[in-house]
Design a protein around this nucleic acid. Structure first.
Lengths: 131, 131
DNA sequence: TGGCGTTATATCCTTAAGAATATAAATCCA
DNA sequence: TGGATTTATATTCTTAAGGATATAACGCCA
């Protein structure tokens, strides 16, 4: 499994120190990854009740959004997003309770990394070639 | 800046918990990244005194190895690898003192992440679809 | 001087990721 | 019944990353 902690300018919940922002990315042993993209998409799905609307909100093709959701659903033993087609609005998608827990976990990991690596990020930032 | 903590089967110094191994990857605001690939290459350069030998040891094309070293040298204010061509062995490369400190920092970050995210990795591992 | 091994590049090719597009399929509602 | 909207999926195209290859440049040494 692989886990990335990203520190960049991104419109995601993250704590900043100086001009740095951090977020988490995790890669599983095979090739599947779990990062801010899928988590943000998950939040948009929760907000809109639709994969396509969430994709549009992130300026992402529906195909890609659907692939991300599909990956999420296949990489965990429990369903992360439930979707249905047809019906009044043509269909929709909801984040499962497991998906909600995954989001909470993800944010908690973010917090833990922020605090654990504060000094490292400061060192990296002060030693990196700015601009 | 982006930081990845990767947990996968890889021949790198990393602590394992269960069948998981973690390592760190960092992405800077632009597009430059710092992860196990460059760090491992750095260790091979230290061991062999040569970019090409380090690349061969990692089964990596010289072009790629050189690009990674070039990226390392341009993303930090201080040189990470010093190289020279010509001479007895045809040339060579050495990891600078800053490069050594970078390696130490990287390993320290690995340690910190390992301890900070133990419970999260356990949760992810127990909830992921195995196989 | 010429050979050797390495750094330093450029050029071309292959491949994988994602965008664009198209089309079923489902289900409600007018 | 047909339209509207979304899920689900296939197909084609574009683009970016890396591999393969070639070639200078460099400086020791035989």
């Amino acid at each position: 499994m692989v886990c990335h902690f990203t520190n960049a300018v991104m419109p995601m919940s993250s704590s900043s120190k100086g001009d740095l922002r951090t977020f988490v990315r995790i890669d599983f042993p095979d090739k599947e990854r779990l990062g801010p993209g899928k988590m943000q998409l998950l939040e948009h799905i929760r907000a809109t009740g639709s994969i396509s609307a969430a994709g549009r909100a992130m300026d992402m093709s529906y195909r890609r959004a659907w692939l991300l959701v599909s990956a999420l659903n296949t990489m965990f033993a429990t369903q992360v997003v439930d979707s249905q087609r047809g019906g009044k609005q043509g269909g929709g998608a909801v984040v499962t309770e497991f998906g909600e827990e995954l989001l909470r976990r993800y944010h908690a990991m973010q917090q833990r990394v922020d605090t654990a690596l504060t000094s490292d990020f400061e060192w990296l930032n002060s030693n990196r070639r700015h601009s």
